Computed example of a mutant assay.
Amino acid sequence: MFKRFSRLLLPLVWIFTVTNALAADTTINTMDPYAMVKSVANKTFDRFHQDKAVIDADADHLKVIVREELMPYIDTKYASYKVLGQYLKETTEDQRNHFVTAFEGYLVSTYAQAFTEYTDQKIEFLPGSDYSNEKMVDVNVQIIEAGRPPIKLLFKVRRLKDDSWKAFDLVAEGVSLLSSKQSEISNLIRQQGIDSVIKMLEDRTKDKVTKQPKAGK
Score class of each variant (00 low, 15 high):
166 K>I: 06
65 I>T: 09
68 E>R: 14
170 L>Q: 08
7 R>N: 14
37 V>E: 06
27 T>F: 10
73 Y>P: 01
184 E>W: 06
162 D>E: 09
92 T>Q: 10
132 S>Y: 04
46 D>G: 05
77 K>Y: 07
21 A>W: 04
93 E>F: 07
203 D>R: 08
202 E>P: 03
140 N>S: 07
70 L>E: 02
204 R>C: 07
4 R>G: 05
41 A>T: 00
147 G>V: 07
205 T>K: 15
31 M>P: 02
62 L>R: 11
170 L>R: 00
35 A>D: 12
115 F>P: 00
23 A>H: 06
50 Q>K: 14
209 V>R: 08
201 L>S: 09
203 D>M: 05
108 V>G: 04
32 D>N: 15
143 I>G: 02
144 I>H: 09
54 V>D: 09
69 E>Y: 11
2 F>M: 09
111 Y>G: 00
20 N>L: 04
3 K>V: 08
62 L>N: 07
23 A>F: 04
195 D>E: 14
193 G>R: 12
202 E>A: 09
5 F>S: 11
158 R>M: 07
161 K>D: 12
171 V>Q: 00
61 H>L: 02
169 D>N: 13
50 Q>R: 15
49 H>D: 06
2 F>W: 13
193 G>A: 10
75 D>W: 04
217 K>G: 11
143 I>P: 00
171 V>G: 04
217 K>D: 12
78 Y>W: 15
36 M>S: 08
209 V>Q: 12
66 V>M: 08
150 P>N: 14
22 L>I: 04
143 I>N: 01
190 R>S: 14
95 Q>M: 05
38 K>W: 00
59 A>I: 02
153 L>S: 05
161 K>Q: 10
